[in-house]
Amino acid sequence: MTDKGSRDFEDLIAEGASVPTEGWDFSWFEGRAGEARPSWGYATTMAGWLGRADAVLDVQTGGGEVFGFALANAPRRPRLAVATEGWPPNVAKATALLRPRGVAVVASSEDAPLPFADGTFDLVVSRHPVEPPWGEIARVLEDGGVYFAQHVGPGSVRELVEHFLGAQPDERRDARHPDRERRAAEAAGLEIVDLRAERLRVEFHDIAAVVHFLRKVIWTVPGFTVGAYLPRLRALHERIGTEGAFVAHSTRHLFHARRGGAGRTAHL
């Protein structure tokens, strides 16, 4: 590699390592990485659900960007809107974004019980929960209440994961399989109304985008640091320089589930 190429690599690595990671605003990636979006248009569809709900909870809201967008585009605001988040930088970002819109943001770790009474909400939403707390979701929903969410599916960006970690065991690739999640939801007392899955193209155009992505989406390569993976980062940088964008594929699935019984949203 030429000296110029080496400097380019080092500059890109430094840039990717310096970008703040809080929240779920992915605008920094524009022109550097891209991901096709699922056909169902989650945030826009969620806005329609919000217009028919009385009390709504957004679980693991991140920086509140998706929930805030949906609220801003809802035809009618719910009487009560609450969001939970466990990572302190995201709690601060979500609070700053959502509190002026009348949303209470509650700091709650992902593995803790949801800090709400049974049957508080007629709608629970979530975009990309780390692990859906099915029992807690069912508990805080009223009879007839709806869970509407977009989940990360099995083997998402597998090509990127395996570049850094090698071939993965089946149990990791299948951990987020929608059939497994369906069974867990049903075991918690939820009825699956609709479940859809899609596989979507992802492109990374430079190594800075890869570094930022791995720092932001921390479960992709657990424990990722630039220092630990520098040789693999350099190899991928050279591959992008030779072959063009690195292509991977994300997986997403849409959940529409309902707690049995006749409640405010049972007719939806």
Rank of each mutant, 00 (worst) to 15 (best):
L50K: 04
V217W: 12
A74S: 13
E110L: 12
F246N: 12
E65N: 04
V202Q: 14
R239Q: 15
T220N: 12
V105I: 00
L98D: 00
F255N: 05
R172P: 06
I13T: 00
A112D: 15
T265A: 11
R259F: 03
E243W: 10
L214R: 10
G51C: 12
L200P: 04
G241A: 13
E243H: 15
G155D: 07
H267Y: 08
A33R: 06
R139S: 05
G68R: 02
E30S: 11
L254D: 07
W219C: 02
I207M: 14
A81G: 07
A167E: 13
D206K: 10
V125T: 15
R234I: 01
R201D: 11
P129A: 14
H205S: 13
V161E: 03
G16D: 07
T45R: 15
D54T: 10
A138G: 07
L214P: 14
P100N: 01
E243S: 12
H256G: 04
A14N: 08
A245C: 10
R7V: 02
L200H: 08
S126K: 04
L254E: 12
Y147W: 15
E238S: 14
P133S: 05
L97N: 00
V103G: 04
P222H: 15
L160A: 10
R232N: 06
V105W: 02
V82M: 07
I218Q: 15
A187H: 10
H205T: 01
A248W: 01
S250L: 08
R199V: 11
W219N: 05
L165Q: 13
G62C: 08
R101G: 00
Y229T: 08
V91G: 03
L80R: 13
G102F: 06
W28Y: 09
V59K: 06
S6Q: 14
A185R: 03
S18W: 05
L160F: 07
D8S: 07
M1W: 10
G223T: 11
W28A: 04
E35V: 02
P20H: 00
H163L: 03
T84D: 08
A266K: 02
R182A: 07
F116I: 00
F246E: 05
D122L: 09
W219V: 09
G102T: 06
T44H: 14
V226S: 12
D143M: 02
L98A: 02
E30C: 00
